Simulated scan of single mutants.
Amino acid sequence: MTTTKNFTETDFEWPKGFYSDAKHIGLKHKKLDFGWLYSEVPATAAGVYTTNKFCAAPTAKTKETVSKSHKLQAIIANSAIANSCTGLQGEKDVLTEQTLIAEKLNIKPELVGVASTGLIGACLPMDKIEKGIAELTLTSSTELTKAILTTDKKRKIISVDFKIQGTTCKISGFAKGSGMIHPKMATMLAFITTDVAVADDTLQPLLSELTDVTFNQITVDGDTSTNDMVLTLANGMAGNKPLTKASPDYQTFKEVLHLVLQKLAQKIAADGEGATKLVEANVLAAQNKTDAQAIAKAIVGSNLVKTALFGADPNWGRIISTIGATPATYNPQTIDIKINEFLVVKQSLAAIFDKDEVSNSLKQDMITLTVDLHDGQYDGQAWGCDLTYEYVKINATYSS
Rank of each mutant, 00 (worst) to 15 (best):
N6S: 15
T8I: 13
F12R: 05
E13D: 11
P15K: 09
K16M: 12
S20Q: 01
K23V: 12
H24Y: 04
S39E: 00
G47I: 07
T59Y: 10
A60K: 15
K63Y: 06
K63Q: 15
I75D: 00
S79Q: 08
L95I: 13
T99G: 11
L105T: 00
I107D: 02
L119R: 13
I120H: 08
I129R: 00
E135M: 12
E135K: 14
T137Q: 15
I157C: 13
I164P: 00
S172Q: 06
G177F: 05
M180G: 01
A190L: 02
F191T: 09
F191I: 13
A197W: 00
L206Y: 00
S208V: 13
T214F: 06
T226F: 07
L231M: 14
N240A: 02
T244R: 05
K245C: 11
Y250T: 08
Y250R: 08
K254H: 08
L257S: 05
V260L: 01
L261S: 10
L264E: 04
Q266P: 00
G272L: 05
L278M: 06
V279K: 10
E280G: 03
L284R: 14
A296K: 07
V300A: 01
G301R: 01
I320Q: 09
G324P: 09
A325I: 06
T326M: 07
P327R: 04
T329F: 10
I335C: 04
E341M: 09
F342L: 02
V345T: 02
L349T: 15
F353Q: 03
S361K: 08
S361T: 10
H374R: 13
D379C: 11
G380W: 05
W383A: 01
W383T: 02
L387C: 09
N395G: 01
T397R: 14
